[in-house]
Design a protein around this nucleic acid. Structure first.
Lengths: 203, 203
DNA sequence: GTCTATACGTGGATAGAC
DNA sequence: GTCTATCCACGTATAGAC
């Protein structure tokens, strides 16, 4: 037995993927600024210099981390095509499915960074507005002038769901079953999307 | 004319307050980690060492910054006492009044920090749960076992309102008139607080 | 390809002079 | 009280050896 093939990684295995996984977790957990390349490298079991070798700067690593194939253009049609009757519940259900999955980590990374980083906030805002909200409201049978507001209201409820479930972790939202949240929050989105918007009523 | 009283601050003016103001703005804008004592001192026009002299550690400065007299125990009774009929709208209105005021900066500081900082998240969570949500739901005429969930749902919508209006700044939420948001979001909270919660319905 | 060594910057905190 | 000077820890990034 000349070579021991069990111990450490021999040549160039999927080190790159290991780094990406560690980076995804670190960015999701601590945000862009607080996540350090050293910590990411340590978590991946490699040298910090390797991270630079593969990804260049920290910012490029971040982009590689969040640039996973999460394409709303693929998910949303199924949510919207089934007709407007329970689109609210379907939206929440799809949303939770994504965020409870591994790609949710990338979303969390983006969100955490958006809070402390203007260019990430811009990135997130534009992604939400042009890729998600616009698609959701564009085929609604409502006054086109109301669409932006309806989209914004939907965003507010969904953003808050993310915050309370994954970031601030308020119970019982944080550990509620998806079905519980779907039945509770779905009607809210339904109303934001399709119900008549009452005129502002100062009091 | 021996002493010039117009130029620079002579002895010990309200330097302390100047530091607090600068700190409030910096923490609100950049969060706990990203806000530097050096930058705060520069904004206040004083020496960084003075900040330590007045407040000790950065953490103590932060606590002094967010420990403004925002006592939910004073605001909430008026919101809740008027009866349960439009408690949702009154909640949103009161909420926006606070967040659009200067003390909202302290809240933003707390929120921004909570996203990247576990102990701040804990601080915010406990403040919300014990000081706000519990008070809101405790006198509701609903099944006590449902109160935590109802409080969490309210928190999710309000947290999302903050995120979309002040942090990610999604239009038209970011610049909407308070009345618009009150009439749009009030009924949501009303439903979360008082409407029957349908049982989860897997599909 | 992978690692060691290091340059370079930033930021919190303290000691001590004035 | 206010400032100068300094220490120390940490993190990004690069150069270069193996």
């Amino acid at each position: 037995m000349r070579a021991r093939r069990t111990g450490r990684r021999p040549g160039n295995p999927d080190t790159r993927e290991a780094i990406l996984d560690a980076a995804r977790a670190a960015f999701a957990e601590r945000g862009f600024d607080a996540a350090s390349i050293r910590a990411i490298a340590a978590a991946a079991g490699v040298d910090p210099a390797l991270v630079h070798h593969y990804f260049g700067t920290k910012e490029e690593l971040f982009r590689a981390t969040v640039a996973i194939p999460l394409d709303p253009a693929e998910l949303l049609p199924a949510v919207l095509a089934a007709g407007p009757d329970q689109v609210g519940e379907r939206l929440v259900r799809t949303f939770l499915k994504v965020w409870d999955s591994p790609v949710g980590a990338a979303g969390l990374a983006l969100l955490r960074s958006a809070v402390n980083n203007e260019w990430t906030a811009r990135l997130l805002r534009e992604f939400l507005v042009t890729q998600v909200l616009r698609r959701v409201v564009e085929h609604l049978d409502v006054d086109p002038a109301e669409r932006a507001l309806r989209g914004g209201l939907v965003a507010s409820q969904l953003a808050g769901l993310i915050m309370t479930r994954y970031v601030i972790r308020i119970e019982p939202i944080a550990s509620a079953a998806p079905d519980t949240l779907v039945t509770a929050i779905g009607p809210t989105l339904q109303r934001y999307l399709t119900a008549p918007l009452p005129p502002p009523n100062p009091s």
